[in-house]
Design a protein around this nucleic acid. Structure first.
Length: 864
RNA sequence: GGGCGGUUAGCUCAGUGGUAGAGCAACUGACUUACAUUCAGUAGGCCAUAGGUUCAAAUCCUAUACCGCCCACCA
């Protein structure tokens, strides 16, 4: 084999290695072999399905790195391992993207019509929809690509429809006319989870509503005067003394002269504004509830186009902001506008397009959460599903406790059509019951029209763990891989997706057909691992629109996939909710890969020798066993960052800095090769490409990706320690600096304890060991006890003085410490555990020893 | 309005009861034949503040401040 270059070039190797894996079938569970009677439980991760509009960002890069580490670890452990990939049609997001590109050509989707528009979306999807899959591969993700699923595959859509029909039959899905969040720009309803509350400067208007049968008025504060056209009551708190007598009176809505009653309701806050509130049941969620209680009429004055409706009389068709201006002006002219004051309050915006949301009443499909939340909360509460880190359990339960019914219909074109049928196609006229049929196929007979609406994207992705495995059929895959092992995600989709998968799974797997006797067998996954969010170095959110994003693929191109993965993983901690990403860590990942590369080069270059094992050989063997145990433990508990750091420190410091330096002089090369081989195994999940490459360079017949993990237990109770050796070397090195000895001059060295690493010691310190402690030697105490003596003709009077000063300083520092420790020991006596006291006494003994060593050294110095 | 995180060296972060660590940056030295994407070393911290528990607190408890995130129907 040609000699390896000094520097590892990841770009030259990574794609070819990936190809080798793909061709080997390693990504498939059991290497693609049919399942026999499995003794081992499968390990399965469902990929949080990326949108087809997506391209890889930093958050993905981290998430996929974590998942790939766990997948590869379990695969090597011998678990039948499945990483199920797929993409999401992403209704609103995709429709918006395609609409935007059409708009650039001056076309609206309405110009094309539904069918032609959908054809365009499919075209777009063909071209760009799998971009992120390619990017995942570049990162080394070992998904089973043969199972790639798209949420609008025929089979998947069938499952979605099936779920809807079953929910309907169970009475969980219903069609209702209720107040919902309407986005005028998306022209669709959206769910409570797809809105954002943003604080904004605005005005609070106080408006006079005159009494109808007496002089005077009642004052009402509002931030949205235009909704007054839909007012059907004024509400006050029943205990409010100011208004008690007025309850039951009628007032006139200004400008439109509609009489409405004053009602009493406990939901009113007496302390806010005037304590009297206008009630607009059609356009405010709280008002809708109040209206419902008091059986108030509902007047829809805001339409789905964001303009006022015909019910707004003279204001019909006006855009909202214009209507507001006009109404304020007219109120002012009529002297009914009492005051206008600046006011900060939060408005709701569409999560997708930041358009202000209009609450309005509309006929939509809903999932009745009251029927699902109990079981869902229970599996979290009883830890049938476990959260990592555990604090997310509380978040989850809290959200479930307060969850509202879920609006699942969307007025979009791109998506999965709702399988409901009726005779008239005018939406809204279909009655709640009796006037439509819910079934996958159209009902018998002519004239049935399908509901034009599509499902919320999350309704379909909620079925992901089941539907990708073949549900509603009770397939072999479903039997084998469901429940999956762990769901790994950022915290942003805990409610949008994770919660919905859980209640979908619990509900649909209950059917006898699946033979799932308890909740533990129905849940979609056993663990939920919430990983940190990736922020910019300054703690900002990474976003394309803010220009704060960093493209992970650029990092991959510059430093390689392994370096990018490792750099990210090295930065995370199990308990952290966010990392401030610094690209320097990727460079350091690249350096680490290079370090590994050069360790391999070095091991290639040394000749095998038949030397007996040294103490260092035993030490490194024990160390890697320990590391293997700790890394394994960390991976089992999702401490991926901790595992990465452990490996980094072991490889760089223990193995390269110490062991290999010793090996240059003495030691068993067989041990070195074996330890490095084990290190490659342990590092493979983190740096899959370079480890695979070096593995094959070592003429291993198998692929590392499929090689068994190290499962030995750490054996030695008192593992050998290199402390003394390291202490000697460090002490000699700093003594050299102190004495200003030329780097290359060979010194005489006496050590108080013998070492079987004497040859290495001499080389690493440029010294010649001597048996006896000559009186002319300068003595330096070791940290762990003992002393080294240094003799050299290069020692000058100046350097002796410097050494004396240093020793004095050290001595004084130790005296201070000794005093402190003695005091602590006195405090501890009689109160602390005997173990702690013994430890403290030992520390003191060591201190005393060091002090006397220094003292002797000082005396010796004075002799010079 | 509620909840959850965080606050440790210039920067990014480890460290869950025994008196503080790493990497990067800075500074000093070295092209030591695996690696200058390297090696050896130096310096740098009242562990946010105030109380409390304890022989002993960065660590446990309580408040406060600041930063971040999540949830929420205050017109």
């Amino acid at each position: 084999m040609a000699p390896l270059p000094k520097q590892y070039d990841p770009l030259q190797h990574e794609p070819a290695i990936y190809k080798k894996w793909e061709e080997s079938n390693a990504f498939k569970p059991n290497n693609g072999q049919p399942f026999k009677r499995q003794d081992k439980k499968p390990f399965t991760i469902m990929l949080p399905l990326p949108n087809i509009t997506g391209s890889l960002h930093m958050g993905h890069a981290l998430q996929y790195s974590i998942m790939d580490v766990l997948i590869r670890y379990h695969r090597m452990k011998g678990d039948p391992t499945l990483w199920q990939p797929g993409t999401d049609h992403a209704g609103i997001a995709t429709q918006n993207v395609v609409e935007k590109s059409l708009r650039n050509q001056g076309i609206s989707r309405h110009d094309l019509g539904r069918e032609k528009f959908l054809a365009k979306v499919w075209e777009w999807r063909e071209e760009y929809g799998n971009q992120i899959i390619q990017q995942m591969k570049r990162l080394g993700s070992s998904c089973d690509w043969s199972r790639l699923v798209f949420t609008m595959d025929d089979k998947y859509m069938r499952a979605v429809q099936e779920a809807f029909v079953r929910y309907y039959e169970q009475g969980i899905v219903y069609r209702g006319n209720r107040i919902i969040n309407w986005c005028p720009r998306c022209t669709s309803v959206i769910s409570d989870l797809e809105i954002n509350h943003v604080e904004q400067a605005s005005e609070l208007y106080t408006i006079a509503y005159p009494f109808s049968s007496q002089p005077g008025h009642i004052s009402v504060a509002t931030t949205r005067p235009e909704t007054m056209l839909g007012d059907t009551a004024i509400a006050v708190h029943p205990a409010d003394k100011r208004y008690k007598k007025l309850v039951g009176e009628m007032v006139i809505v200004p400008l439109i002269n509609r009489p409405i009653p004053i009602i009493a309701d406990e939901r009113i806050d007496q302390s806010f504004g005037t304590g009297a509130v206008k009630v607009t049941p059609a356009h405010d969620p709280l008002d809708a509830e109040i209206g419902n209680t008091h059986k108030l009429p509902i007047i829809n004055v805001i339409g789905e186009d964001g303009r006022l409706t015909n019910l707004a009389g003279a204001y019909a068709n006006l855009p909202l902001d214009e209507a507001r201006l006009q109404i304020i002006n007219e109120l002012d002219a009529a002297e009914l506008l009492i005051k206008t004051e600046p006011y900060r309050h939060s408005i709701t915006l569409c999560d997708r397009c930041s358009t202000p949301i209009q609450p309005l009443i509309s006929r939509q499909w809903f999932v009745d959460m009251s029927k699902l939340k109990g079981a869902t909360t229970a599996v979290a509460e009883q830890e049938i599903i476990k959260f990592f880190p555990p604090r997310w359990k509380k978040h989850f339960i809290n959200w479930m406790d307060n969850v509202h019914d879920w609006t699942i219909s969307r007025q979009l074109w791109w998506g999965q059509r709702i399988p409901a049928w009726w005779k008239e196609d005018t939406r809204g006229t279909a009655k709640e019951e009796g006037n439509f049929v819910v079934s996958i196929d159209p009902p018998e007979g002519d004239g049935w029209l399908q509901d034009p609406d599509v499902f919320d994207t999350w309704f379909s992705s909620a079925l992901w763990p089941m539907a990708t495995l073949g549900w509603p059929d009770n397939t072999a895959d479903l039997k084998t891989f469901y429940p999956t092992s762990v769901l790994i995600s950022g915290r942003d989709i805990i409610y949008l997706w994770i919660a919905r998968m859980i209640f979908s799974g619990l509900n649909f797997m209950e059917d006898e057909k699946y033979a799932r006797p308890d909740q533990a067998s129905r849940i979609p996954f056993e663990h939920v691992f919430i990983h940190p969010t990736v922020l910019t170095k300054t703690g900002q959110r990474m976003s394309k629109s803010l220009g704060t994003g960093i493209d992970p693929l650029e990092l991959v191109d510059e430093y390689g996939a392994d370096a990018t993965r490792f750099g990210l993983l090295h930065q995370i901690s199990y308990d952290n909710q966010a990392i401030k990403f610094d690209p320097v860590s990727i460079r350091s990942g690249r350096n680490f890969a290079n370090k590994i590369w050069n360790i391999a080069r070095f091991l290639e270059s040394i000749e095998d020798r038949d030397q007996p094992s040294t103490y260092a050989d035993h030490w490194i063997q024990q160390r890697i066993q320990q590391v293997a145990v700790e890394v394994t433990g960390n991976l089992e508990s999702y401490k991926v960052g901790e595992a990465a750091r452990l490996l980094y420190d072991f490889i760089w410091h223990d193995l390269a800095d110490w062991y290999l330096e010793i090996l240059k002089v003495q030691g068993d090369t067989k041990v070195a090769h074996a330890v490095f081989r084990d290190a490659l195994i342990l590092m493979h999940p983190f740096l899959p490409h370079i480890t695979e490459l070096l593995w094959s360079n070592k003429n291993n017949a198998d692929l590392l990706i499929s090689h068994p993990w190290i499962t030995n237990k750490a054996s030695a109770k008192n593992p050998p320690s290199l402390d003394l050796f390291q202490d000697i070397i460090n002490t000699v090195r700093s003594a050299r600096r102190l004495l200003d000895l030329p780097t290359k001059s060979v010194i005489d060295l006496y050590i108080s304890q013998p070492s079987d690493l004497a040859p290495a010691l001499q080389t690493m310190t440029h010294s010649r060991l001597v048996d006896a402690d000559a009186s002319s030697f300068l003595k330096f105490p070791l940290i762990i006890g003992g002393v080294v003596g240094i003799g050299s003709s290069d020692i000058t009077a100046d350097s002796i003085e410097a050494a004396a000063k240093k020793l004095d300083n050290d001595y004084n520092a130790l005296i201070t410490q000794q005093t402190k420790y003695q005091q602590i020991l006195r405090q501890m006596t009689g109160k602390a555990s005997s173990k702690a006291i013994t430890a403290k006494k030992q520390e003191l003994a060591l201190l005393a020893e060091k002090l006397s060593e220094i003292d002797r050294s000082r005396h010796a110095l004075q002799g010079h």
